[in-house]
């Protein structure tokens, strides 16, 4: 039954385009309606598929609405071409519904480029922000904030390939506000990613950004960090441009996949190595638990007046539920205003 004290928040879910099809997205959104009475789900996509999925899962129908979208952008499509050809694709319809106030934020597990482009075409940039940034979390060696969160935030990881010094400053402010609200880390440390810790190291825009960041009020800027500092967790928020961030992220992902491959090889190769791995298994499980990216649900696109959480393409229902929770929290805490309030006045 409906007894809600918090202001209701509606999250638009782009149901199409994820690797596991609409069922996982609908399951995740349905679970959200059971877990949190103040969050409503607006499911955008093929109505027949949504209805079929929804009928099979426990959900709170009072907190679910469906909006039919006849098209969707698949993973392999070129974002700009696909969005031009499919003005009624689910990701664009979801973004429009957010702009029109039917929903407060959106979540998609579909084509990342299409999601970012749909936001760029539909939402407005926060005054003082020139370019948006895609942020992601990365597991580190240290915990931070009220929740002892092991994740640091890296941004930008692909939305703005060539960022200026002012863009990097805006990214730092956006990342700091996001970490404060989502990770409950009241004073997150912020660093610039460079090829040395000295303030004068790196390309001109990074050096200039370093100087400017030292004077941003309310920002806990700790200077430059190197790539090695990302997994160490030296900073809570690591700032870079989209090109560097994307290369860095892919490399980190590649390293962790290689480690897993090596462990698999070791497991098969020698009985002694297998025994060693077995002895470590509870520790490995624990690491898996604390570094479980699904608890974060996805990566936020920061800089727009509305929030978009890009869930991983292979997200299962749990990640989608959490992406919805993260989005709702950002809306409740008025992330856009928090960012605007911290930006240096030009």
């Amino acid at each position: 039954m409906t007894t809600v004290s918090q202001r209701p928040v509606t999250i638009a879910f782009d149901v199409m385009g994820g690797d596991h099809g609409p069922l996982e997205i609908v399951r995740g959104a349905a679970q959200l309606t059971l877990d949190t009475p103040h969050i409503h789900a607006l499911l955008v996509g093929d109505r027949a598929q949504i209805d079929q999925a929804l009928a099979q899962v426990r959900h709170h129908a009072e907190r679910v609405a469906v909006h039919h979208a006849p098209d969707f952008v698949s993973m392999h499509e070129k974002p700009n071409v696909a969005l031009e050809a499919k003005p009624d694709s689910s990701v664009l319809v979801a973004a429009r519904l957010v702009r029109e106030g039917e929903a407060d934020a959106m979540v998609s597990a579909g084509n990342t480029g299409a999601g970012v482009l749909a936001c760029a075409r539909t939402f407005c940039l926060i005054p003082g922000v020139r370019r948006a940034a895609l942020a992601t979390v990365y597991p580190t060696a240290v915990g931070r904030g009220e929740k002892n969160d092991p994740f640091s935030l890296i941004l930008d990881v692909g939305a703005t390939v060539d960022a200026s010094a002012d863009d990097l400053v805006a990214f730092a402010v956006m990342g700091s506000a996001y970490a404060r609200i989502i990770s409950k880390n009241e004073h997150p440390t912020v660093a610039l990613l460079s090829n040395g810790t000295e303030a004068q190291k790196g390309p001109a825009r990074v050096v200039e950004a370093n100087q400017k960041l030292q004077h941003v009020p309310g920002l806990r800027f700790i200077g430059n960090v190197e790539g090695v500092d990302i997994p160490k967790g030296t900073a809570d928020v690591v700032v870079c441009d989209g090109f560097v961030g994307n290369v860095c992220l892919k490399m980190l992902e590649g390293v962790s996949e290689t480690v897993i491959e090596l462990a698999r090889y070791a497991y098969k190769e020698k009985l002694l190595w297998r025994a060693g791995l077995a002895m470590l298994s509870s520790g490995i499980e624990r690491i898996k638990e604390v570094t479980d990216w699904e608890q974060y649900g996805g990566a936020p696109i920061l800089g727009f007046d509305r929030l978009f959480i890009k869930a991983h393409g292979r997200s299962k229902s749990r990640a989608i539920t959490n992406a919805g929770k993260v989005a709702a929290r950002a809306v409740s805490k008025d992330l856009a205003n928090a960012i605007q309030g911290m930006l240096p006045k030009s």
């Binding site: 409906t2 409503h40 009072e62």
Partner: peptide, 23 residues
């Protein structure tokens, strides 16, 4: 009665209505 005594609102009522239509 639902609005006045049990916290139902525009969203929950219109969602309930749409749920029946979808079925």
């Amino acid at each position: 009665e639902l609005v006045q005594t049990s916290g139902y609102n525009l969203l929950t009522l219109s969602n309930s209505f749409q749920d029946l239509l979808r079925r």
